[in-house]
Amino acid sequence: MNDSVRPAAGPTDLPSESGASAPIVVVGSINADLSTRVSRHPRPGETLHGTGGQVRPGGKGANQAAAAALMGGRVAMVGAVGTDAMASDALSVLEGSGADLTAVRRVDGPTGLAVVTVSEDGENTIVVVPGANGAMDADAVGACSEVIASARVVVLQGEIPREGIEAAARLATGRVILNPAPVLELDAEVLCSADPLVVNEHEAALVLAQLTAGPGSVDGLSPADLARALHEAGIRTLVLTLGAAGALVGTPTADGWDLQEAPGLSVDAVDTTGAGDAFVGALAVRLSEDAALVDAARFATRVAAASVTRDGAQSSYPREGEGLPGNG
């Protein structure tokens, strides 16, 4: 058992406030990833032979924390694992990354699980079973209020309960990076407090529907038009990720609002699993150092590009000092 994780406990047992404060605090999911490779993704009802079957650490929260810590950020993780054997797998990279795990609690039942299927072209599908992540409600997050409030940057995603995400956003006194993936219903106040909101095009459309109280039509909207629509709906700063094409970065200016590009990089993709989380973790590191958002996004694009050239999520993340694609 990892000594930095609290002993097996019931769902009402909460972590203490004994963890050291860190400039970056990630509040989110911790999973074990069961990874398989196939020549192509199966059609409905179809069975294919695959390879792999390795269990690796994952979960969007843990991925982002690991990416930030490996790139030299001082990071504390707030989350939960179960009492099963997969808890050790889920925490293995975080333990070695230097992240503070004092605020990771252990609850009865299984650790969160993601089943990842990767095709030959590097594209993936993922099925997530929440497990212990479901225990990260407002009470569990509130028990870590001092750690969260002391952070310069608080990073949130969509793989813990809504009330836990909203509690963390309201406890934060520093900058909140909100990456609502998967997208779930959140208070407009929380969405609009993001600085920045980090979404891909699909997620952007779903968030826009929440903010405008209706699905509307985004068919035919360019990424730039979609970004502007989110700003008009109340989003202050935005990073709209575009996969291999990079990202668009929206920030307020004296004259209104400005969109700039963080260009994509050409690399030989092996596995895209966790690339978006590598981006968010690297973004958090630069923002904790007071970099301009567009500069942070351009750096994050390079880290994400490096990650897709290797298998896995956390196992693919580069370390501080390692060469990255593109110009620094």
Rank of each mutant, 00 (worst) to 15 (best):
N2H: 14
A9Q: 00
P11R: 11
T12W: 05
S21L: 12
S21A: 11
A22Q: 15
A22P: 11
G28S: 02
S29F: 11
I30A: 08
S39A: 12
R40Q: 13
T47I: 03
G52E: 06
Q54Y: 06
K60A: 01
A62M: 12
N63F: 13
A66P: 00
L70V: 12
G72M: 08
G82S: 13
D84H: 01
D84S: 00
D89A: 09
A90R: 01
S92G: 04
V93A: 04
L94A: 07
L94S: 03
D100C: 04
L101Q: 13
R105M: 10
D108S: 14
G109C: 01
G112N: 11
A114M: 11
V129G: 00
V129R: 00
A132H: 08
N133Y: 01
N133W: 03
M136C: 11
A140K: 03
V147P: 02
P161N: 02
R162D: 05
G164T: 07
E166P: 12
E166Q: 15
T173C: 01
R175G: 02
V176T: 15
A181S: 15
V190W: 00
C192I: 08
V199T: 13
N200L: 04
A204Q: 12
V207I: 07
V218L: 06
V218K: 05
S222L: 08
A227L: 14
L230R: 05
L230V: 04
L230G: 03
G234Q: 07
I235H: 07
I235Q: 06
I235E: 07
R236D: 13
R236M: 06
L238E: 04
T241N: 02
G246N: 11
G256D: 14
D258T: 06
L259S: 14
Q260N: 08
P263W: 01
G264H: 04
V267Q: 09
F279A: 06
V280L: 12
L283E: 06
A284R: 14
L293P: 04
A300F: 05
A306I: 09
R310E: 11
A313G: 07
N327V: 14
